[in-house]
Write a protein that binds this DNA or RNA. Sequence first.
DNA 1: CGGGATCCCTTAGGATACTG
DNA 2: CAGTATCCTAAGGGATCCCG
Lengths: 213, 213
Amino acid sequence: MAARDYGQYGGVARSLELVGERWALLIVRDLLVGPRRYSELAAGLPRIPSNILATRLRELQEGGVLRRVPHSRVIVYELTEVGRALEPAVLALGAWGLAALGAPRDDQVATADSLTIDLRSAFRPAVAAGLPPTAYTARFGTTELHIRVRGAALEVERGGGECDLAFAAGPDIRSLLSGELAPELAIATGVVEVLRGRGRLLTRFATTFRLVA
Amino acid sequence: MAARDYGQYGGVARSLELVGERWALLIVRDLLVGPRRYSELAAGLPRIPSNILATRLRELQEGGVLRRVPHSRVIVYELTEVGRALEPAVLALGAWGLAALGAPRDDQVATADSLTIDLRSAFRPAVAAGLPPTAYTARFGTTELHIRVRGAALEVERGGGECDLAFAAGPDIRSLLSGELAPELAIATGVVEVLRGRGRLLTRFATTFRLVA
DNA sequence: CGGGATCCCTTAGGATACTG
DNA sequence: CAGTATCCTAAGGGATCCCG
């Protein structure tokens, strides 16, 4: 009835029984950004077979992690309170994975939802709290995100919008966020292209979002 | 070469490729407590087939999460720096799973290592920082742990030792840690049996370690 | 068109036995 | 003790099809 279990009585084992199956935490990741429909989830997880997506949604629902909400004609999946409580764990995993990330291969995609969670994983509230409110528009490949930092609060939304700095970033933005590449150099070498606003704010961006703790 | 991948470029997907395979995070969990030999890992994960354990150890080594250290005749597995960086993620998952834990079934075991991580998941450093140093000896079933809290620091070791309070706890200690059951009632109902020391300290224990944050 | 279900094949996982 | 080897089952993957 529960997913196949580990025969252990403990927190980690229980978590893995509920959300440890393949693809499950990626579904949770996308739902942490907001409620999504089946087809949106499928689009954000291009390689998931549709039967697996359906199976995982059912299992996660039975485990109390998410619920199906019928909205007139369409069905929307959203996290329950229990499911939202996974956020710290998902962000911690995200932060660890970001540090272990190499260069993107060309068979890999970065979706809006995954980028959003990546930003939240790399966000440093304690640092941001000491900085003035700032809005960025960031374009990664074809997806554009509107990022607003107000004190220790972060909001990320799809699409552009009013901002203090708009930039387009290539994959090497990793080196900017890891501190290997100075912001001025990132601009000079074309890793980051300033589209609008004050390029100096890229320094603030790079201290607000950072890999490795 | 890497584990089968998700076709996504992002922190969470990368983490899951490295430590998302079945059993992998339970191995990491036990190694977070300390270096372990193959047979110790096998004993702590009673249901893992030995070929799977061997496969996981190899994959985790290739992923840079752990290393094999030959010690004269025996081989010891220990986490690398990268592997130890998984601690926040494992503890976050542990805390979430603890909150989702029901009563133990009799086909489930609780090992010393899993109990140790559970305690670390439930530990509240901010609360502990305001309390005097305290040492506990806790017996869960047949395993005994020596727990020392000094300010915001926690140490958990196998076995007993000098302590301010020694107690034996049944599975229902869950309700104590979740706040459903008052410490006095836990003692009165036999959920917790005080073996030595001041039973009043159980209240301190229950505020130092707590489910749900 | 959204939300799946079915089919078939490949691969990983599980149980057990065995070896340097 | 620290793993391989083998065999079998069950889960994942990919394509296609279906139904309201």
